[in-house]
Simulated scan of single mutants.
Amino acid sequence: MIVLRKALWGVLVVILLVVAVLVTGVFTSKGSAAVVVKVSTTKEGNITKDVFANGKIESKVIKEQFVTSGGVIEKIHVKKGDPVKKGQELLTLSTTDLNAKLKQEKHQLQVNLAEKEKFLKDQEKVRKQTFETVKKEMSETGSAVSLESFDENSAVDEKLYDLKIQDAESNIDDIQKKLEKNQLFADIDGIVTGISVKEGQEITLGTSSFMITNVSQLQIKANLAENDANLAKVGMKVKVSGDAFTNTYAGSISYISPVAVTSELDAKESVVEFKVDLEQPNVELRPGYKATVQLTIENAAHHIVPLSAVKRDGKQSYVFKVVDNKAVRTNVKLGEENDEFIEVLEGLQPGDQFIEGPSADVKEGIQVVIK
């Protein structure tokens, strides 16, 4: 019985000694309680950040068609929304007036040709008569016979007839070219998305008449906030989604505007336009649909820490480093962040230990116990 009591007293003494050691370990020399903390070591890493931009789907190829001749529209062969193929007839101009003018000019040409022919025959007769007269006069005076003056005047008159003939031929050629252009044909495959003329309307050369949109070559036009614009690069891969379609589509940035403009949504903000080429557009995508472009941006490698490690005092950010088992407040300069980590640009060195998620009990200089 005495032996058992001695054994129990021995166990009790050991327990008391262990408790004393633990109590001594969790109190500082000043008597302040130490705080148990979770500690990590700084490491290098990349912050991956998702940036979203709203935009619209549009066609990369929109062709405005202009008539190549003037006249009255006799027939429009398509309506808005119709699919068309390159070379398909869009409209026909009336040829009634042109055919009447062509007939008139052809008649005038025949008249001019006949007048010239008659003139040449008459001139030949007159020349013979003139030659005989001049010959008789010259024989009496002994001078040489010359019809130079007569021939010069005759050549001038003949030239006038030639000009009339050329004018009629030119008019005929112009009318025939207009007749050849009395039809307008589609320049590209696509959908008729606009018609700005109507049957019976008299139009002039160069009048805008149709808009044709190629819906198989689509792109997204969107705006990036000015703070994100420098993060985007031509060729960067993106994802495109929208409420009007079910699938998510892959694409790449094909263009970034060199200038910023005022946002239509907020006059105080500037935005930069960019365009995205879709890799495999589907029939469910239509020009005019709203779309959201997701850019995943990876920054250059920096020291990164969990968001929970960073505290803020007004505008100043800081972390608690662990130095000689004490918490040391260290001001830091921060960079980009994502849902888990944030860049520390200044304030930490490789291998520094810092406290994750410091509680309100963690103060400058307090003794800490690492989990």
Score class of each variant (00 low, 15 high):
314 G>N: 13
78 V>C: 09
331 N>P: 09
195 I>M: 08
167 D>V: 05
163 L>C: 02
200 G>D: 04
55 G>A: 07
170 S>L: 14
327 A>I: 05
104 Q>K: 12
125 K>L: 12
304 I>F: 00
186 A>Q: 10
351 G>H: 10
82 D>I: 05
157 D>W: 06
168 A>I: 08
59 S>F: 02
22 L>N: 11
92 T>L: 04
246 T>N: 10
111 V>N: 05
179 L>V: 08
39 V>C: 03
13 V>H: 04
45 G>R: 00
66 F>M: 09
133 T>D: 15
178 K>F: 01
122 D>P: 05
142 G>K: 04
293 V>Q: 00
100 A>H: 12
139 S>W: 04
60 K>H: 01
272 V>H: 02
182 N>S: 14
354 F>E: 01
107 H>E: 14
65 Q>T: 14
334 L>V: 08
186 A>P: 11
234 V>A: 07
294 Q>K: 15
120 L>F: 05
28 T>W: 00
195 I>L: 11
192 V>E: 00
133 T>Q: 11
350 P>N: 14
324 D>Y: 04
279 E>M: 07
230 N>M: 07
48 T>G: 11
311 K>R: 12
84 V>N: 03
342 I>W: 07
358 P>S: 08
344 V>L: 07
200 G>S: 03
248 T>F: 02
332 V>W: 02
60 K>D: 07
199 E>C: 04
313 D>F: 06
185 F>I: 12
33 A>I: 06
193 T>S: 15
129 Q>D: 15
18 V>D: 11
35 V>Y: 12
103 K>H: 03
300 A>V: 07
107 H>Y: 11
280 Q>P: 00
283 V>R: 03
248 T>D: 08
55 G>T: 06
264 E>R: 14
106 K>S: 12
221 K>P: 00
338 N>E: 07
82 D>C: 05
361 D>G: 05
339 D>L: 07
287 P>C: 04
243 D>P: 03
189 D>F: 00
15 I>R: 02
136 K>F: 03
260 A>G: 11
